[in-house]
Design a protein around this nucleic acid. Structure first.
Lengths: 225, 225
DNA sequence: CGCCTCTTTGATAAAAGTCAATCAGGGTGG
DNA sequence: CCACCCTGATTGACTTTTATCAAAGAGGCG
């Protein structure tokens, strides 16, 4: 049924049926619960069916760093494939559901289905690119640009899921946004207020309504190094 | 011969011989030359045999962000596997040599050699973790901690290559270090001077000698959030 | 030898963080 | 059902960190 949500591939009808074997198990995650934690055995990856999930690392002195906010259709858990142990936490931001893709089973099927192998490789490459993009944002953009880019990114991803790109609900706190972007929660809050004052958007708690998409885009690009 | 440098795997004697087929081609890179650039067709990955290479992204407004400094034994080029086009530049920091691993050929061999598939997956996961680590450093550490962590990281990686962990030559400029760490070149320079003043290390141009490894480690961890 | 790039250092400014107080909702228990 | 509490958000005053601008110094390569 919703295989494309679990592992969005471009493959033949018959191939897709093979995948049904792969995705038997599902997990329901109440808000705030962990899909996995650091040190947990990593023998599967997870496709998000509904809800949203954050992933965060834990530094050597205990500080947390959020590395991603994942939405339906996206894959979580690929960080653990190095040592078969997860090196991050994955926590549901709201009640969510994921489907489980066991690595072993995937390997078995991929043996006769090279397209799956390639698809999986693409997914990992995507993850690399995602964190590189974030790296560039944190490393070379100013706070206002980072937040603008963040809002636009959420908007785009929600739009591809069929939601309105102009009006949506943030599932994370100011503190989580700040942590993700390398800012403090106060800075994030002030920026939201400023964006609202400047007529770029309207914000009421976590409900965002983008009023001037073009202005936001301009802001995100304004640097001209 | 030096296959483990090109694709460090834990596999049987016979398997290793299979790999010889894989690595026929080598490329010599003069200092400053590009292994690939944004938009180039990505049909191979590269194992560094000697020298060092930086990878950098280009933002929408033209700003560059260095995402990695790669040393011998490390793999470069995995960012391009998403769309078969590279999305970054890879540039030699000194005269370097890489061996070419064509994706197609690797796939063909991996068909009968699952260990290779797994090894490749591990490498991609490692790349994800690497950029997550950097993300955490830039996102949640102060400038002095970032630089200390950077120095320690270089030291460790050079040590695993058989070089002295206490004395080495940086192949990149202050500006490149700064860009990588999300700092300006002036800040980097001042920090080096300060570390030297505090007796943590001695620095003369790009020659580093670590005098107080433990002090540096402490500095890198000092946050206690 | 001299130019050119890289580096160092200083003075100043701007950005973002910290501390602190208040405010707003949402959920819980009386 | 309402008051209260607790978490999260906002805003202000102030500090710290880091960037920016500028000038001078050091090597290295042609």
């Amino acid at each position: 049924m919703l295989n494309e949500v679990c592992l969005p591939v471009g493959m033949s009808r018959g191939d897709v049926e093979r995948l049904d074997e792969l995705i038997k198990e599902r997990i329901r995650l109440p808000k705030g619960s962990a899909l996995y934690g650091i040190g947990d055995r990593a023998d599967a990856i997870y496709g998000i069916r509904s809800g949203s999930i954050k992933t965060q690392l834990e530094g050597s002195s205990g500080q947390l760093q959020i590395t991603g906010f994942l939405l339906p259709g996206e894959i979580v858990g690929m960080d653990g494939l190095l040592e078969s142990r997860h090196v991050s936490h994955a926590i549901a931001l709201e009640d969510s559901e994921v489907c489980v893709i066991r690595i072993n089973e995937m390997d078995a099927i991929a043996q006769q289905l090279p397209a799956l192998q390639h698809q999986f490789r693409r997914l990992m490459s995507k993850e690399i690119n995602r964190s590189h993009q974030l790296l560039m944002a944190i490393g070379s953009l100013r706070s206002e640009q980072r937040l603008a880019a963040f809002i636009l990114n959420m908007s785009q991803r929600l739009a591809t899921l069929g939601y309105s790109p102009n009006e949506f609900l943030l599932r994370m706190t100011r503190e989580e946004i700040g942590n993700y972007l390398g800012l403090t929660l106060e800075t994030v809050s002030r920026l939201f207020s400023r964006f609202a004052r400047e007529g770029l958007l309207r914000i009421q708690q976590r409900e965002i309504r983008i009023l001037d998409m073009h202005g936001l885009q301009e802001l995100a690009l304004t640097d001209c190094a």
